[in-house]
């Protein structure tokens, strides 16, 4: 076992992990941050996306020790300081961007990474950016609408693709 330390949602945390401990397991089982979901565990579905030093990554395909010393943000870090929903989260609620909700943590984290680099994306850019996040309920339209709304843009009827 090796001790790993990182900052998660602004709080310094540490724990003993094996070499093979995935960041997703460290967050969920070590820190109790079960908002980060593990859907496929094969880096296909994107429900485990978190930010490591500002970059969106799949936490099921990264060892916890690789994030030693890093700044990590999870879905639990996306709410406002008073506990109310953050802008992207609120938009997902307003536009019904989820049904079962399993993929939603990864969708919100990917959306946040997109809007950080590209604050006013086109609908096509949103869809392209989400190609590593799989949703089996919504057909994506309301997710795209929510992200367009969160970026402060008009939400028009999105193209059926």
């Amino acid at each position: 076992m090796t001790t790993v330390s990182m900052t998660v949602n602004g709080k310094s945390v540490s724990g003993d992990v094996e070499g093979r401990t995935l960041l997703s397991a460290f967050l969920r089982e070590g820190q109790g941050l079960t908002g980060t979901h593990v859907g496929c565990d094969t880096s296909q579905c994107g429900s485990c996306v978190v930010h490591v030093n500002g970059a969106a990554v799949k936490s099921c395909t990264l060892f916890a020790l690789e994030a030693d010393g890093a700044e990590v943000t999870t879905i639990e870090g996306m709410a406002n300081a008073d506990g109310s929903l953050g802008t992207i989260q609120q938009a997902f609620q307003d536009y019904h961007g989820l049904q079962c909700g399993f993929c939603t943590p990864g969708m919100v984290m990917s959306a946040a990474a997109l809007l950080k680099d590209n604050p006013k994306p086109t609908e096509a850019e949103v869809r392209h950016y989400l190609e590593g996040n799989i949703c089996r309920c919504t057909g994506y339209h309301n997710i795209v609408k929510a992200i367009m709304a969160a970026s402060g843009q008009d939400v028009v009827a999105v193209a059926a693709e």
């Binding site: 994107g46 996306v49 970059a55 969106a56 799949k58 395909t61 990264l62 190609e131 590593g132």
Partner: peptide, 9 residues
């Protein structure tokens, strides 16, 4: 290549 999260790693 892959998707944005894969490209970041």
């Amino acid at each position: 290549i892959g998707d944005p999260a894969v490209r970041n790693r």
